[in-house]
Simulated assay, not measured.
Amino acid sequence: MFEFKTIALFAITAIAEIVGCYLPYLWLKQDKSILLLIPAALSLALFAWLLTLHPTATGRVYAAYGGVYIFIALLWLWVVDGVKPTMWDIVGGVVALVGMAIIMFAPKNA
Rank of each mutant, 00 (worst) to 15 (best):
L35K: 02
F10I: 09
I90P: 03
I34F: 09
I18R: 00
L53E: 14
L97C: 02
W27Q: 10
Y25W: 13
V79C: 10
L77A: 12
W88V: 14
G93N: 00
L51G: 05
M104V: 07
L53C: 11
V95T: 04
F105A: 05
K5C: 06
I70L: 07
A48I: 06
F2P: 07
M104P: 00
L37S: 09
W27N: 11
Y69D: 07
L75H: 01
A96E: 02
K108E: 08
I102Y: 11
S43Y: 04
G59N: 15
L50R: 06
L28I: 09
M87Q: 11
V68Q: 04
T6A: 08
P55H: 08
S43W: 03
F10H: 12
D89G: 08
V68H: 01
A57S: 11
L37M: 15
A40K: 05
A8W: 06
G93Y: 02
W76P: 04
F4E: 00
F47Y: 06
W78L: 11
A48L: 10
T58N: 13
Y69G: 06
M104R: 01
G67A: 08
Y65T: 00
I70K: 04
G59D: 15
E3M: 06
G59S: 15
M87R: 12
F2L: 09
M100K: 04
E17V: 15
